[in-house]
Simulated assay, not measured.
Amino acid sequence: MAESEYVLEAEGLTKQFRGFYAVNGVNLKVRRGSIHALIGPNGAGKTTVFNLLTKFLEPTSGRILYKGEDITGTGSAAVARKGMVRSFQISAVFPRLTALENVRIALQRPTGLTYQFWKAEEVLDSLNDRALELLAAVALDDAAHTPAGELPYGRKRSLEIATTLALEPEFLLLDEPTAGMAHEDVSRVSALIRQVSKDRTVLLVEHNLGVVADLSDTITVLQRGEVLVEGDYQTLANDPAVREAYMGTGHA
């Protein structure tokens, strides 16, 4: 069977909460090896779509295909094991553990050592080289022995991306990766996303239009839970409906 051009496909994706349609008939195709951005005004349904795709919510109707397989009824943990891994808008690291220890814990799952905290220290030390490689990839090699809680916000988000990469995702979903960051941190994380996208597919929800314009191959604009338009940044920037619904508001 030939490999599909699209890693992820959503068909008629709908989520209803007590009569309110948070997402209504969304069709989405994420091309293999691309960076695809999901944007729209506040309340457009971006996070709900993300939660549906990663199975943190069950759709009211519609279906989701991952690498050609219907995963609509599959749980979030099983989806993650298939190589579809997400980060969250709020940084999710262990603040009292060092950066190295955070990455090392994430590395335990692919190696079969998952949650074996009672293992002898030398066994877990076997993961150090790979953990240090991942920290270097996100420019945190100088902070390997720093407690995660002491890292500045931007570097904490970089650590989260390192722990996500430790899970060896084929398809990486990033929820607001630059939210709340200073300009220099935004630049650093944007460069990191471009770097890690070289051998995987990325879908991101992002407010920062500069980041979207710089990184994205394809952009889907949501409005009131529905797809308004899709295309590259230049096409969307010149679309009157997008400018009215999104760019003119100053919000994503």
Results as ranks from 00 to 15, higher is better:
185 D>G: 08
218 T>A: 01
212 V>F: 11
200 R>Q: 02
192 L>I: 13
194 R>Q: 06
210 G>A: 14
205 V>L: 10
216 S>A: 15
190 S>A: 12
221 V>P: 14
203 L>H: 06
195 Q>V: 07
185 D>S: 13
201 T>N: 11
191 A>S: 13
186 V>P: 00
220 T>E: 10
205 V>P: 02
222 L>T: 10
221 V>C: 06
187 S>W: 13
199 D>E: 11
219 I>G: 12
208 N>Y: 07
192 L>W: 11
195 Q>R: 14
216 S>W: 10
208 N>C: 06
193 I>G: 01
206 E>V: 02
214 D>K: 15
216 S>R: 10
203 L>S: 04
194 R>D: 10
194 R>I: 05
222 L>M: 13
214 D>M: 10
216 S>E: 11
195 Q>A: 15
197 S>V: 01
202 V>L: 03
197 S>T: 02
184 E>Y: 03
188 R>A: 15
205 V>H: 04
216 S>G: 12
196 V>I: 11
195 Q>M: 10
186 V>N: 09
202 V>G: 04
214 D>E: 15
203 L>N: 06
192 L>P: 07
207 H>K: 09
209 L>P: 02
186 V>D: 02
212 V>N: 09
184 E>D: 14
219 I>A: 02
217 D>I: 00
208 N>I: 15
192 L>S: 03
215 L>E: 03
196 V>W: 05
216 S>N: 07
215 L>Y: 12
205 V>N: 06
197 S>W: 01
209 L>M: 15
220 T>R: 10
214 D>L: 10
199 D>T: 07
202 V>F: 01
215 L>I: 05
188 R>N: 07
209 L>E: 08
189 V>G: 08
199 D>H: 06
185 D>V: 08
207 H>S: 03
203 L>Y: 05
185 D>L: 08
216 S>I: 02
217 D>W: 07
187 S>H: 14
206 E>Y: 11
221 V>A: 01
191 A>H: 09
188 R>S: 09
197 S>R: 02
202 V>D: 04
211 V>K: 07
219 I>E: 07
190 S>E: 14
216 S>L: 06
217 D>T: 09
202 V>A: 04
188 R>P: 01
199 D>M: 00
222 L>G: 05
198 K>A: 13
202 V>S: 11
207 H>C: 06
190 S>H: 03
198 K>L: 06
210 G>I: 02
189 V>A: 10
192 L>T: 07
208 N>R: 08
200 R>W: 02
214 D>N: 15
222 L>V: 01
202 V>E: 06
213 A>R: 15
214 D>G: 15
197 S>G: 01
189 V>E: 07
193 I>S: 01
205 V>R: 05
201 T>S: 14
197 S>D: 00
202 V>W: 10
185 D>A: 11
209 L>Y: 11
200 R>E: 02
216 S>T: 03
205 V>G: 00
192 L>R: 05
213 A>T: 14
216 S>P: 13
222 L>R: 00
191 A>T: 09
193 I>L: 00
196 V>Y: 00
207 H>A: 05
185 D>C: 09
209 L>G: 07
188 R>I: 13
212 V>D: 11
207 H>N: 04
212 V>T: 08
220 T>A: 08
188 R>Q: 14
187 S>M: 12
196 V>H: 01
206 E>L: 09
194 R>N: 13
198 K>E: 09
187 S>R: 15
207 H>D: 03
213 A>I: 05
218 T>E: 13
195 Q>I: 00
199 D>F: 01
208 N>A: 06
